[in-house]
Design a protein around this nucleic acid. Structure first.
Lengths: 138, 138
DNA sequence: AGTTTGAATGCAACTTAATTGCAAAATCAA
DNA sequence: TTGATTTTGCAATTAAGTTGCATTCAAACT
């Protein structure tokens, strides 16, 4: 009986190791995006360089995508199953200017935009900054 | 007779200094976005910390907006005249995966998206990755 | 099961962009 | 011109990201 994490790694052709299962589990248990530092906090015994390379591998294999919001460090989130290596769909994200959390938005249908002549698009990402529900209430 | 740069600084309520005029001139003379390092190259005698603080000031006063593309360093571009402090419009940018240049796209009309309940948006930015015209031809 | 081989890991060191403190210089208004 | 305030230049620091290398591990193959 394989865990969800193991299953996912297998599907994405990523060699299964203890570290990778645990890093992936952190993502599976969270709704918002996570930075390398967040993973370090979640797995205090783990080595930074290993986590770093794990994230890179996951990104290369289209298991995670990276997001740059207004915070200093890069964040990562699980890819939807429409993502493939070198071919991602539009990734819309919301970054809260107060708490700093960034979440992936789903169910958005952004029309494909017409680019200037001879420009070729591979990937679209939309970042929306604002105030999230939780911070709105406070 | 004031230069364009001086005029702009005045409009945005930014105190006029030699450095600021020259940094702004670099932006006025370029079509694509520029990083702090790019400004250092353009103004080799200038001090990095001063440029850094100049860019921050320009961003605060909505003369520039910052852009995070897939390169390591943050880039900046002139705001359109629809930008105001704390209230920017949608900023669409195109980042070429080959040459690394990032340009602002104009004339895009991105429909305002419906956010989840109680989410409030201040700012939208769309990053399109792909291949630019120049690199396409090569 | 033991062996082999390439990949993954852990540690330490390093790189680089971004950022700060502080004293000197420049700006602007009175 | 003077004084209050802001900006500048230099040097030092922070912090995220990244790499080299020796060791360990995973899994494919006797």
């Amino acid at each position: 009986m394989k865990s969800d994490a193991e299953q996912l790694l297998k599907e994405k052709n990523i060699k299964i190791t203890a570290n990778r299962i645990l890093v992936l589990d952190v993502f599976l248990k969270n709704t918002h995006t996570l930075s390398l530092a967040d993973i370090e906090l979640a797995l205090p015994w783990a080595d930074r360089a290993t986590i770093f390379r794990t994230l890179k591998t996951f990104e290369e294999k289209a298991l995670l995508h990276s997001i740059k919001d207004d915070d200093k460090s890069v964040k990562y989130a699980l890819c939807s199953n429409t993502c493939q290596v070198n071919h991602h769909r539009i990734h819309p994200h919301f970054h809260c200017d107060i708490c700093g959390n960034t979440v992936c938005l789903t169910g958005f249908d952004i029309p494909i935009l017409k680019l200037p002549d001879n420009y070729k698009a591979n990937n679209y990402s939309l970042m929306i900054n604002g105030i999230c529900e939780k911070c709105q209430k406070q």
